[in-house]
């Protein structure tokens, strides 16, 4: 393992965040505040409680997930797409590093960034509603696993994309709709039975449900199933990344 190279990529990616501090840190904090004003206060005041938890507190886990996923995807996809776009990718390909080291560097940095932001959002949320986290360890684990999985997905998108439009299209057309329909602002038990069944095909449901369980011990599906599904997504992404590097897909001719 060329640890120094991994560390170099990691540091390089993290330093990008410092340069775009306003965009990367301030904007999620502001959007958290906005969600609380709209859903927590304006709408939430008319909804009493869901399964014994105040609506404001109920939406916190879903809201964090709502930001964590696209952030992980964009961080990682931009991270690897940019060298492709500017041409500096030649350096990565001609350096004495393996593909797995490149992935660890880029995906590790992207996941770190989005996890940090999720924690900042959690702290911001704490200013609006009293929070209790029954299983902090599991909360962190769900957070890190989700960040890693979606960073891997972002990395794949970054490799696959050959223009800026493609880079945006999956987060916009797939991830955002799934996130909104995945029980972020509601429990899927509030839906009619048919839609409950449809929702079970939405992977996001499992992520939100498990994450919410770590806060309040309430969930739409069992925690084991949630973890299992995350493992499936993570495994799928790893297989795709492995294939990309084995074949040099869109990287090497």
């Amino acid at each position: 393992m060329n640890w120094r190279a991994i560390w170099t990529i990691y540091k390089h990616e993290m330093s990008r965040t410092r340069r775009t501090l306003a965009q990367s840190v301030v904007s999620p904090v502001i959007s958290t505040c906005l969600y609380f004003v709209v859903f927590g206060s304006a709408i939430g005041s008319r909804i009493t409680e869901i399964e014994g938890v105040s609506y404001g507190a109920f939406i916190v886990p879903g809201m964090i997930m709502l930001s964590l996923r696209p952030l992980s995807v964009t961080n990682a996809s931009f991270g690897i797409y940019f060298p492709k776009f500017t041409g500096t990718i030649y350096e990565l390909l001609s350096a004495p590093i393996s593909f797995i080291e490149i992935v660890i560097g880029y995906v590790g940095a992207a996941a770190t960034k989005s996890t940090c932001l999720a924690l900042i959002m959690l702290a911001t949320a704490h200013l609006f509603v009293p929070l209790e986290i029954l299983h902090p360890f599991w909360m962190l684990l769900f957070m890190v696993l989700t960040a890693t999985t979606f960073s891997l997905l972002g990395f794949i998108i970054g490799i696959w994309a050959i223009n800026f439009e493609q880079l945006q299209i999956i987060p916009l057309l797939v991830i955002t709709p799934l996130a909104f329909l995945g029980g972020t602002f509601y429990s899927i038990t509030m839906l009619p039975p048919t839609w409950q069944t449809v929702s079970l095909f939405n992977p996001v449901v499992y992520l939100v449900s498990g994450f919410r369980w770590s806060f309040y011990e309430i969930s739409d599906v069992s925690v084991g199933v949630s973890l299992g599904m995350i493992a499936v997504f993570l495994g799928t992404c790893l297989i795709v990344v492995w294939y990309i590097f084995k074949t040099g897909y869109r990287l090497k001719s």
Binding site: N2, R4, W7, T8, K11, T86, T88, E91, L92, I97
Partner: peptide, 20 residues
Amino acid sequence: TTDAFETVGHVVRFSRGLFG
């Protein structure tokens, strides 16, 4: 092909690190 936003010193040190 260069990282337009980075400094000269940064990219040169980056290259060294990438080679371990």
